[in-house]
Amino acid sequence: MGEIYRFSKSIMSFINDKLAEICGFLLFAIMILLTVNVASREFGIAIPGLTTTAVLILIAVVYLGQSRTEEHDEHANVDMVTNMLPSKWKTLNSLFINILKLFTISFFFYGSIGSFISSYQANEIFADVVKIPMWPAKLAIVIGLFFFAIQILLKLIEDIRILSKKSWKTNK
């Protein structure tokens, strides 16, 4: 069991790294495109649909980055109470929270699939001067939330492992 867990963890770590790389690249792309547009507009040529493209990219950055942020425990919380708890209770609280998170993000993920499919089928586009499809953004939501849920699951398993080790120790 431990082997599989460690293996999954390192795979997720790798995926998160790649996702972060993609997000970074996307940010870089927005930056360059917007700057190029400023320059080209001075010559009377504006890139049509650029603001919408930037929005699409932003959505991708936001969702694709969720799992790495989760991996590094960077989702902001108010940890006043947990800091006062003894370590075993801390882990129990964390277990409880991770179960809640897993339910929530799985629910969110489930919703995003339907949203993506209907957007794709209806050929949903942004309201702009050029036709930019919405489905890539919605696909990014699906992918981002999928890995987010997996990452939470791994954290949850980690909590269970810590708890079972601890109870094993106290039983002994």
Partner: peptide, 10 residues
């Protein structure tokens, strides 16, 4: 770049 993307996600 990555760090900014992370903060954005959060």
């Amino acid at each position: 770049l990555r760090e900014s993307a992370n903060t954005t996600s959060m």
